[in-house]
Nucleic acid binder design. Structure first.
Lengths: 367, 367
DNA sequence: CGATTAAGGGTAATCGATTACCCTGTCAAG
DNA sequence: CTTGACAGGGTAATCGATTACCCTTAATCG
């Protein structure tokens, strides 16, 4: 055999663009091949007990194998009035925190035979509403709200008791609703204790919009604990980064932080905000964490590589998926229907272990 | 009116966990309310021309509004043998590059009224196969392969001419297949030119597995161009990071790079790999980019904030979504069915503009 | 032995849309 | 006046599953 370039090990006949989509086998064909009715095939596939003898079962499974039969999701959903799809509504996949949690949720769903429809909502009520309607049209198994905002359809969904799980941020309406997240109050309190132990003088706070319960909890708990320790008149300047984006934080840091009197301690309610603040700090010649201790929230795994100067509260990303799936299943399990509505996951305080300094950017070199 | 705590502005009656899911209105009810047949309702909804007088149209739309009718996706999919779902198979949502591209694709799909099912495949052929089967069962509108690997079901999908679009990495089989990505060959060649202009002595290469066409193109093109400029005997040590993860790159950098003779130029085939290599460089006391020029690929937008020392080839994230949607639509458009199979997007060379140094990590401080 | 009960399995209704096919007017061209 | 063409709209088949209901057989119980 002459040696050939080996990259595509298996070669396929050239695709015929006009080849008809060989329509997949239906339950009818399986039934015919196995010599039983479609009812029996359905029962075998769905493991209905006492409805098929071992011999029949075997014949059906053999036919399924032969035809490589896959039940049509549409047929099933139409009849059962329920699909195996779970919608995940996330503010922004560009945010590592949301992307990681979505990833964790997807893996956990897959283990249950469910699939994830993922949508960016941009924290926009209209987009959130459009997607909630879409989820209804899909008759989803459940909806996961990663960073919900108030919106009419969300209200509607709550009223009709649709299977809804809120992640991280709690439900923006005052009704009982399932929730998965960390204990932001305790975490922020521990951060306050740590920062107080390092810098008794006070700390600056850069926070995301307070419409989010997570941001609120983090800010108020931090303030309360710090003032408990340092006295009520302790300065805790509060800067509202009106988005949750690093560039907004960067711009705000520019107007608030100057090299002559930099804050010795900075508490940011998310890592993203910390990145923006830190960028400015580096650009005015500060050295972190020597000149300022900066604390974030979320614990992006990338920090170890790119932001060793950042202390943060790490969320247990991999636990979110299973917890969300449990919360969804509870909607269909009579016995758990009124179980606990909150799933509080453990967090971890990560202290900066790297001393990293930056100088002002040089002029870009010409190509 | 007495002032009340204002957080949840709208209050909802306590949810009744046993409330029946008020089943949504069907096309039948709309037809009854409008006094027409379901056929007419369907035609109005789908804008079939010359099938409804303006008056009828109006009545139907009014009924749709009144009942807040939403067509069942399952009913539609069952009849049309095609859903409005697009599957996106990505190796890992924890990778910012994949997350950003998925986000862009989702937005573009939404603009077309399509929804995205997203799945992590972990570059595992078995998981990829399971998801490809799932996509068939869902009768998806199309499948987007972000980082495809060879697998039996993929072969099968290609053979049956399913609507498949490969992103970034080309199809791992040697058949015509639609592809969206940047011109890796040209990009790597330009990187080689730049690195040569800075450091004629040569460069080290850290690369992801060469099973990926993107990695192959980047490595071979870089080598070819650098050797054209520097001579064939120019040293270009090549280190295979067998995963595409930053921690693997970090470990390999540890065994290959020492402080006494660090490489003056390092070419990494992805930003993630560059992060791992850079971490080691920082830890042994190097200053980047002063001591080494390090080049990545992908252009994570976070670099501006967290890795200003990194030069990189930036992918136009926001262009991926529309390009992918175009490629998918081409499968259903007779006139475009045999159009160009490749959509090559522009890239941008980003040169490091920050000088940032790191010292070895300090002992973690006790809590 | 008769009456129950459980196992095994078939028949056909059902879910909610789309669409092929058919029918009725109207109007303009020839 | 006849003939088409076209607008407007209804009837019913169809997509592929699940499942309520029914039937037969065999085993069990008193």
């Amino acid at each position: 055999m002459p040696s050939k370039p080996a990259k595509p090990k298996i070669s396929i006949a050239t695709r015929d663009p006009k080849a008809p989509q060989a329509s997949a086998a239906s339950i009818e064909e399986v039934a015919r091949l196995a010599g039983v009715s479609t009812a029996t095939v359905s029962r075998v596939i769905n493991n209905v007990p006492n409805k098929a003898s071992p011999a029949t079962r075997e014949r059906v499974l053999k036919a399924v194998e032969t035809l490589s039969y896959l039940p049509s999701r549409a047929g099933r959903a139409l009849r059962q009035q329920r699909s195996h799809i779970v919608g995940v509504l996330a503010p922004d996949l560009g945010n590592a925190y949301h992307a990681l949690i979505s990833g964790s949720i997807e893996r956990a769903l897959r283990d249950q035979g469910l699939v994830m429809v993922l949508a960016n909502t941009g924290e926009d009520p209209d987009q959130q509403d459009a997607m909630l309607r879409e989820m209804r049209a899909l008759q989803v198994f459940g909806v996961v709200m990663l960073g919900a905002v108030q919106s009419p359809e969300l209200e509607q969904s709550l009223k009709s008791n649709e299977p809804l799980v809120f992640v991280n941020r709690r439900c923006p309406y005052d009704v009982p609703a399932r929730h998965v997240g960390i204990d932001n109050v305790r975490a922020a309190s521990e951060v306050a204790e740590y920062l107080f132990s390092q810098h008794h003088q006070g700390a600056w706070i850069f926070h995301a919009p307070l419409k989010s319960s997570a941001s609120r909890d983090r800010v108020t708990s931090f303030q309360r604990r710090f003032q408990e320790l340092a006295g009520a008149d302790c300065p805790l300047p509060e800067i509202d980064v009106s988005t949750r984006r690093r560039d907004s934080a960067y711009q705000l840091a520019k107007t608030h932080i100057s090299a002559d009197a930099p804050p010795r301690a900075i508490f940011c309610t998310t890592d993203e905000i910390a990145y923006g603040v830190a960028r400015h700090c580096f650009e005015i010649g500060l050295s972190l964490p020597r000149d300022s201790t900066i604390f974030g929230f979320d614990g992006n795994p990338m920090n170890e590589f790119l932001a060793p100067w950042l202390s943060t509260v790490r969320s247990p990303y991999e636990l979110f998926g299973p917890a969300v799936v449990d919360a969804l299943n509870a909607f269909y399990d009579e016995s758990k229907a009124s179980g606990p509505f909150d799933s509080i996951l453990p967090f971890e305080i990560i202290l900066s272990n790297g001393l990293q300094t930056a100088h002002a950017p040089a002029e870009p070199e010409p190509v």
